[in-house]
């Protein structure tokens, strides 16, 4: 196990974690502001990826594809909020789970209807393809490095949006006291639509970015959604900082676990048993991490409310 491999895997883990962060940030924001648990967040991720693949396939431009992903997911998010989601804020979590589960069925089958069951492919643009040599002579795919940078930039943008702008003040106020900000003359219904569309756009953006390294297909959103849940449970629901730290923890645990647990098992078992036990354990590692965090801090690392 060389140092170069280790650094490569750490970068892979970071890249995965940053993409999870884009998903988790939207989920945690929507929960923090509106108190809504949104299972359909994975569908918005899928919609972003399909918009990007369709537009990039037609125009040949990856950048246009990304813009289409942001716009498509934001529009889908705003529409869903206006038609369905806003009727759910006053309902209990059970109704929210079911209604958003119903939305997943509708979105998944709808997408299958339009695009068929075969996966689409989104190509990495020429200017981001190929490996790059990092200091120390490590060869690493440029696109994955770009994902880390883009993700961090979006995270920074989100931080500035929430801490420095007027909209951010309203979002934070909405988390704390919705009656008060309504009394101060802020259109809370509009604010909710904007927050939901923002979360949707983040998910769609992540879907498009990841779509270029995996295939774009129906059902791609749900595994990511569940991992994003693990992230926000670990980070604490409603906390964007928690989402970032949780996402990096989950990304690193999952990636490094998949590589190193089989190796560690080889110290105790014969190679084929070790690989099988190691990979079983690795696939469970993030859930064990989550259980451990919960035992120590039931409200997550940075959660205010349980």
């Amino acid at each position: 196990m060389s140092l170069i491999l280790l650094i490569e895997q750490i970068l892979n883990g970071l890249q995965f974690g940053i993409m999870l962060f884009l998903m988790a940030a939207g989920l945690t924001l929507i929960f923090g502001v509106m108190g809504l648990i949104n299972l359909a967040h994975g569908s918005l991720y899928m919609i972003g990826a399909f918009c990007a693949a369709a537009v990039a396939g037609k125009t040949g431009s990856f950048l246009l594809g990304l813009i289409a992903a942001l716009a498509g997911a934001a529009i889908a998010g705003a529409l869903v909020e206006l038609v369905v989601i806003r009727r759910l804020y006053r309902k209990d979590h059970l109704d929210q789970v079911l209604a958003t589960f119903a939305l997943i069925l509708i979105f998944s089958e709808g997408t299958r209807w339009i695009f068929g069951s075969f996966p689409l492919f989104l190509d990495v643009p020429d200017y981001l393809s190929g490996p790059i040599t990092l200091p120390g002579g490590i060869q690493y795919p440029l696109y994955r490095l770009a994902l880390i940078v883009i993700g961090l930039a979006v995270g920074l943008g989100l931080y500035l949006l929430i801490s420095k702008t007027r909209l951010g003040v309203q979002i934070r106020a909405g988390e704390n006291d919705r009656e008060m900000i309504a009394a101060l003359g802020i259109d809370i219904a509009k604010l909710y639509t904007i927050v939901f569309a923002l979360g949707a756009a983040l998910a769609g953006f992540a879907g498009a970015l990841v779509g270029a390294i995996q295939s774009v297909q129906v059902g791609m959103g749900e595994p990511v959604l569940i991992m994003a849940f693990v992230v926000i449970v670990i980070g604490g629901i409603g906390s964007i900082k928690g989402a970032l730290i949780g996402a990096l923890l989950v990304g690193l645990t999952d990636t490094l676990g998949g590589i190193f647990l089989p190796e560690v098992m080889k110290l105790f078992f014969d190679p084929s048993t070790a690989t099988s036990i190691g990979s079983s354990l690795a696939s469970m590692a993030i859930y064990v991490l989550m259980a451990a965090v919960l035992v120590l801090k039931p409200a997550g690392l940075f959660g205010a409310r349980a």
Binding site: I37, I226, F229, V230, M290, L294, P298
Partner: peptide
């Protein structure tokens, strides 16, 4: 140990 949304997400994760 948890309730509400946390409980939903945790059971899902298990």
């Amino acid at each position: 140990r948890t309730a509400g949304v946390y409980f939903i997400m945790i059971t899902l994760a298990f």
